[in-house]
């Protein structure tokens, strides 16, 4: 699924200067606990979180996740945006709750990470 479709469904704002509407997003994953993302998140997924701190970006970075969407109107501060831009991570923000965001994306066909085990 293209990032622009996700952005549209979530009515999300783009917060970083590296937005790529054509980027392919394979999977969705959502959590507020970063260890959970590290354990089960997959490269090429979008991370939905309400954890509005710098560790959301660091987690995405080390886990090779290219897009982070903050839910429930969470707007990260300038330092977090700068870090994301430096690490080439796209940051979005939506007014929708985590529940509604996941529900809507699932209903347009974005898959989750549940059935994938980690093998590299």
């Amino acid at each position: 699924m293209k990032l622009k479709e996700i952005k549209e469904v979530l009515e999300a704002d783009v917060l970083t200067d590296n937005y790529d509407p054509e980027m392919e997003i394979a999977l969705g994953c959502s959590s507020d606990l970063m260890s959970d993302i590290l354990a089960f998140g997959k490269p090429d997924s979008i991370l939905l979180t309400s954890l509005n701190n710098i560790q959301a970006i660091n987690t995405a970075n080390v886990a090779d996740i290219k897009v982070v969407c903050f839910v429930q109107s969470k707007i990260p501060n300038e330092m977090i945006i700068k870090l994301a831009e430096r690490d080439d991570i796209i940051v979005l923000s939506t007014k929708l709750t985590m529940f509604v965001s996941c529900g809507k994306l699932y209903s347009i066909g974005l898959e989750g990470c549940s059935y994938l085990t980690f093998e590299e």
Partner: peptide
């Protein structure tokens, strides 16, 4: 559930 949040919520929403 054995599902992760994203899929579980997707199913509940459905």
């Amino acid at each position: 559930t054995e599902l992760q949040t994203f899929e579980l919520v997707g199913k509940l929403y459905e």
